[in-house]
Design a protein around this nucleic acid. Structure first.
Lengths: 161, 161
DNA sequence: ACTCATGTAACTGTGTATGTTACATGATGG
DNA sequence: CCATCATGTAACATACACAGTTACATGAGT
């Protein structure tokens, strides 16, 4: 089965935005994410509805973070992209009349619910700030080498990736 | 995303088989599962390789359970159907050179791994016998009413669902 | 031999995430 | 005020995996 990568992608994009002072265009974010600007806008639209990011049009426009990164968790982001299914397995039929199927569903649903709850709890326990801090730690670990990441530390945000 | 229902379906089928004395044909199992006989054979092929079920051709042929239902766990069945992905989310790229993406992947992978481990543990903790017992308990609860499940208790296995 | 049932290949159907093109809308700057 | 830039969105194309279907070969039983 092909996996849903919207959460992964949008987190990547948000962390890049956090390193910028001004707005970042979909065009720039799309290059960092190796995808199309429209895909970025499509996913960002969900975050904008939740006021996690803001967009401005025209010259010098683009996307900016509009939330407190300390308070915003990965779960908030997950929900903003539409709360896609976390578990890849399912039952053949909900509300079956067959008792055999009811027993099977009950056993599997229990397992699925537990795993889903665990994932939501873990996502709710990590903030964007924590994630960004982890990124910075990795940067230090790599000796701030610009070659090994997509962000540059120059004072000109126009040339960052 | 559409869910993988092979585990659910095959468990349904196995529990029905457990109520039968002789072999059960793909045709009969397919009707209980509301699907096509070929789909049943396709999934059962994986179980046969693991010697969990056996198949016989010709008159009076069909599928029979070839394992100890006390010792066989849902995890064994899960693996027999090919260990499909449990988690529906993924990273946009494995082994990224971008440190931002590495940080994102690390955070998500940790969560995914934990949830996956939990699911495998739960699946490994439930046997086919337990599941079958749960089914029988449900049957008692419903006053053994034949109308509410697909299995009949007559002495003629040829007319069971 | 005839029938029944599995074994399997090949093809189709379907749903969803993703990618792309096209164009409208609105903001900025000269 | 008009050209440019960037978002907003619809519409369509693509990719992929599970599920369903058709067709036919193989082997077992009567």
């Amino acid at each position: 089965m092909s996996l849903d990568t919207r959460l992964s992608g949008i987190l990547h994009v948000l962390l890049h935005m956090a390193e910028h002072r001004g707005p970042v265009t979909s065009e720039v974010l799309a290059r960092a994410m190796h995808t199309n600007p429209v895909v970025v806008r499509r996913v960002m639209a969900g975050l904008r509805e939740k006021r996690l990011v803001a967009s401005t049009k025209g010259h010098g426009g683009g996307w900016t973070i509009a939330c407190d990164m300390e308070r915003t968790t990965l779960r908030h982001i997950y929900e903003a992209v539409g709360s896609p299914a976390l578990i890849a397995l399912g039952n053949r039929s909900e509300r079956p009349t067959c008792l055999v199927e009811q027993a099977v569903n009950a056993a599997l649903d229990e397992t699925f619910r537990e795993a889903e709850a665990l994932m939501l709890e873990r996502l709710g326990g990590g903030s964007l700030a924590t994630l960004s801090a982890d990124f910075h730690a990795r940067m230090v670990e790599h000796g701030h080498s610009i070659d090994h990441h997509h962000h540059n530390h120059s004072h000109d945000p126009e040339h960052s990736t």
